[in-house]
């Protein structure tokens, strides 16, 4: 694979996707330390919000230690070069959240929908475009549909005003060929000036390989997080990606040793548990289940006496999509009841 001379914008998600394994409890000091470290390492863009985006604070997804306003208000003024992005899932966050983020100086808004439901993003993408923000459409769980179906959804987001559209592997299920097929199709369909991005999860250990496949197929923005801090087995580990990019001659503008040090000295000590490919996160990737379900399934499994892997497989079988965290406890209760009934009858 020859990617020499390709220019790629890296987008660090440690302080947004990384909120999931931290149960949204990252302190302001930790946020500031990581953000400053990434700024010094030359990271062009970092995302800061609740793990489920603006307005994610809830019983369903978890109440964060601080509000989105507090996190953004602390990080943005401290940045010398790095720009800050915010995620917004229509149905959870609203245009009021978007306006708040814009007023606090957020540069990039990423409007995320399930891969078949792009038309719920019209009002949010439209407003971000009107506010002249860097406006990104983010098609989640993109493994669930065929490339040509994904193209239709990407076109909708572009038509609403997105200047970049992401193919998002929320379940960490895709293999490099799946990424190639989707990114190629979307790249061919959208206007040349519209950028394509790829967001990976490392559940099948494919984060770096899939990102390379995406670049080869025309993606110019690559997500990841430092030390891989993210939902499931985490995101594409960006310090690893930068090392690979250096060897291949891909230009990221990020200093390898500095991001290595952020990963080792700042992010690793923050981890409550090692974000790794354990059997549950591997199951997410294997069965194609939304990565942020991981800790909810572990908790529900422990409470109701069901193996968390069994819960995740059942959620996948029932076609659950991002945002349906409420169905994890519901599914665990139902499974526990059915098993108790079966045991009595057996």
């Amino acid at each position: 694979m020859n990617l020499k001379g390709k220019k790629v914008t890296l987008h660090d998600n440690t302080l947004r996707d990384g909120m999931h394994p931290k149960r949204h409890q990252i302190t302001l000091d930790q946020m500031l330390a990581v953000a400053r470290g990434l700024d010094e390492a030359g990271m062009p863009l970092i995302e800061v919000t609740h793990g489920d985006g603006l307005g994610g604070a809830s019983v369903n997804y978890g109440f964060p230690l601080h509000s989105d306003e507090e996190y953004l208000g602390a990080v943005i003024p401290a940045m010398k070069h790095t720009k800050v992005s915010a995620l917004l899932l229509p149905g959870i966050g609203t245009v009021e959240h978007l306006r708040m983020a814009h007023e606090l100086g957020v540069h990039t808004i990423r409007v995320a929908t399930h891969c078949t439901e792009a038309d719920v993003s019209e009002q949010h993408i439209g407003l971000a475009r009107k506010l002249d923000m860097d406006t990104v459409g983010f098609l989640m769980m993109a493994h669930m549909i065929e490339p040509e179906q994904l193209v239709a959804q990407a076109r909708l987001m572009e038509s609403y005003g997105a200047n970049c559209v992401y193919v998002t592997d929320s379940a960490g299920h895709m293999l490099p060929d799946d990424v190639t097929a989707r990114v190629t199709a979307v790249r061919q369909a959208l206007k040349p000036e519209t950028e394509i991005g790829f967001h990976g999860h490392h559940n099948m250990s494919m984060g770096v390989a899939n990102s390379l496949a995406a670049i080869e197929a025309g993606a110019s923005r690559i997500d990841g997080s430092t030390n891989g801090l993210g939902a499931g087995a985490g995101n594409t580990p960006l310090e690893v990606f930068v090392a690979v990019a250096n060897r291949m001659g891909i230009e990221t503008g990020v200093d390898l040793y500095r991001i290595m040090d952020v990963a080792e000295d700042l992010v690793l000590p923050m981890m409550e548990h090692l974000v790794r490919i354990d059997r549950d996160s591997l199951t997410l990737g294997y069965a194609g289940v939304y990565s942020s379900f991981l800790l909810f399934a572990k908790r529900a499994g422990a409470k109701y006496g069901i193996a968390s892997r069994d819960i995740l497989v059942e959620l996948g079988r029932r076609g659950m999509v991002g945002g349906q965290e409420d169905m994890i406890e519901d599914t665990a209760i139902t499974m526990a009841r059915e098993r108790a009934t079966a045991a009595v009858e057996g």
Partner: peptide
């Protein structure tokens, strides 16, 4: 209030938590 739209086939019956 949160709303989630699910495209599963056959269509899922409305769920409310």
């Amino acid at each position: 209030a949160i709303i989630v739209i699910n495209p599963a086939e056959p269509p899922l019956i409305m769920r409310d938590t």
